[in-house]
């Protein structure tokens, strides 16, 4: 049985996939489905509670929360997907090359990765964004930086095993270049592990992006971000608690959905559980 089929049989994974896909759909379809313009202010309808007109209420500028949540999902997903993609590529290459080359080089590179890994990731992200300036690209860079080291470790471990396998030796005997062996023969064998790890780290990336936005280091207003919306709601918590609750729940749901998917995928690809 394939890993995907196994993962699909797990109800938690299915639930996680449904949650995640609903949020992705809301983000992608936001321009068509959102009832209002997420940045349009309406002084006449400020801080309104949930109603038939505004399903999730309005904020202190009279902007529709539901619409802002849908557009905010775009930022969350874009930043975390971009960051994890960068981390997989950069961390994956570092880990693969380090493990493949081995020896002293490997020792030094992995020592550096351990140092990067031991940094408190939120502080690291916070300072990098603060220094580079808060915008989408810099958020991607900052969050990617916090995730490179784990992916380097994930990529290195199986590379150490694979490079001793006879098919790699056969590649050398056939005159293949190191680049070819690394990317054509070793990479395909570690890709699934990297992607499973990627789904788990997506959850962390969403949380980090939200945390940075909450601190005030997110994509600049008026662009809606979930963390920024929570922050705005928090400032009006006495008058309109739903302002903080709804974006908070949105973040929680997306992180939870991604964690559920990642957990299921990891269990399904765990060699200890596999019988092939």
């Amino acid at each position: 049985m394939g890993a995907l089929a196994r993962a699909r049989q797990n109800p938690t994974t299915t639930a996680g996939a449904v949650i995640t896909l609903l949020i992705v759909a809301a983000a992608v379809l936001a321009p068509f489905l959102a009832p209002y313009d997420p940045t349009e202010q309406d002084i006449m309808s400020r801080l309104q509670g949930p109603s038939a007109e505004f399903w999730l209420g309005t904020d202190q500028f009279g902007r529709d929360i539901l619409s802002r949540l849908m557009f905010g999902a775009q930022i969350s997903l874009t930043v975390s997907l971009g960051a994890i993609a960068c981390a997989i590529v950069i961390g994956g290459v570092i880990g693969m090359v380090s493990g493949y080359v081995g020896g002293r080089f490997d020792l030094i590179v992995m020592q550096m990765m351990d140092v990067l890994l031991s940094f408190p990731s939120l502080i690291l992200g916070l300072i990098v964004v603060a220094l580079l300036g808060p915008d989408l690209i810099n958020l991607v860079i900052a969050i990617a930086l916090t995730a490179i080291a784990p992916f380097a470790r994930i990529a290195r471990a199986p590379t150490l095993v694979l490079k001793e396998r006879a098919f790699v030796e056969a590649g050398h005997a056939l005159g293949y270049s190191h680049t070819r062996i690394l990317f054509r023969h070793i990479l395909p064998n570690i890709l699934s592990e990297l992607l499973v790890m990627g789904s788990l780290w997506m959850a962390t990336a969403v949380r980090t992006e939200a945390s940075l936005s909450f601190i005030g280091l997110g994509v600049k207003p008026p662009t809606p971000t979930w963390g920024g919306m929570t922050r705005d709601g928090f400032e009006n918590i006495l008058d309109a608690p739903w302002l903080a609750i709804f974006p908070g729940v949105a973040i929680l749901l997306l992180v939870l959905g991604l964690n559920m998917v990642g957990d299921g995928l990891r269990d399904a690809t765990d060699p200890k559980l596999r019988h092939e």
Binding site: R165, A166, F167, E169, A170, A173, L174, G175, P188, N189
Partner: peptide
Amino acid sequence: ALKTIRRKMQMVFQDPYSSLNPRQ
């Protein structure tokens, strides 16, 4: 030069299970 020499000397491995790339 090494590539040309390697072409003329090939190897057959002991373990048929690890000598082929499982993803190829």
